[in-house]
Nucleic acid binder design. Structure first.
Lengths: 162, 162
DNA sequence: GCAAACTTGTTTCAAATGATACTATGAGCG
DNA sequence: CGCTCATAGTATCATTTGAAACAAGTTTGC
């Protein structure tokens, strides 16, 4: 059952789930995301999408939801819901877009900015704990490789659907 | 707004979402998983959990659901549902466990095994397309780093909850 | 100008997810 | 034995997700 007479080699060598990159990637990401998400939820009652919106608003100032979608690689529905939650908690404010009536500009409130200032060090501490024991150049390479995988996946998805 | 007078340095340097490993990991994984999941779904009407169950049964022969849970890092509910779907399609069979009446042993049918044989090359082709352009030693390092991140996340999660 | 086509953001709906509770069986111990 | 406790797997429920339809506003082409 593990030996394929036609190909003349062990079938088990052909495909091993443990060695399959998409599987490894998904499992590692789930473990890390789960850890982080639980932490944000428990301590600050924030979802990951909400935290991402806060981050890009802290970095780039006022943005429309469309710009946030582009910056965070999230669905527009996800961003819309995250923004509504943050609005209710007065962590962000909305203002009219000067040139486009469909759009609004989101920006952090004082409170939102202060929350960001509070969480950011904890987030960095989590990252530091995760990569403790890894060589810095390995971490840098890891980030580059992840970006290239993301780009490759995007390209392959585009190739198929278009 | 990007300059914090109190700390005397640019705020943007403190936390950049783009450089945050959990974010990069999640985004890359979502891009890759989405691509793969769509492909399994479109061509074979299989979910990712179902595909994972097929893989470990192809590798290891008859397993209980508990063993599959351990092998695939999935929730037991997820495995239960995946198994039920595969049973309905006669891709796996269930037999009594010789020593434990609560448990069943799952194994691939001829049809399930043949489906695995059909999908595996495609899965490998996807992986090859994703890592095209990357140095093989970089890919090997990537897999090792992912495994270590997963372990670190598991450990951190354990530290908190226990 | 103004109708058709497109964009922005929201709502709606169906599917996936996972925590919790439950059933059925097995294990430990007096 | 017989009672409690642990485990395998399933069912239930609330939440999350994203695709598709939608409303409101903008752009384009004639």
């Amino acid at each position: 059952m593990k030996y394929d007479a036609a190909s003349g080699r062990a079938k088990g060598d052909e495909f091993r789930l443990d060695a399959y990159l998409p599987y490894r990637l998904s499992v590692a990401s789930n473990a890390v995301s789960g850890l982080i998400a639980r932490s944000y939820q428990d301590r600050f009652a924030l979802s990951v999408p909400q935290w991402r919106v806060i981050c890009v608003l802290a970095e780039d100032g006022g943005l429309t939801q469309g710009q946030i979608v582009a910056r965070t690689v999230m669905d527009k529905v996800t961003v819309s819901r995250a923004a509504q939650g943050l609005l209710k908690r007065h962590l962000v404010v909305r203002s009219e877009h000067h040139a486009d009536g469909r759009s609004h500009v989101l920006a952090l409130t004082e409170e939102g900015s202060s929350l960001h200032g509070e969480i950011a060090p904890l987030a960095l501490a989590y990252e530091a704990a995760l990569i403790a024991g890894l060589a810095p150049q390995d971490v840098a390479l890891l980030k580059r490789l992840l970006t290239r995988l993301q780009a490759a996946a995007g390209q392959l998805a585009g190739d198929v659907s278009i």
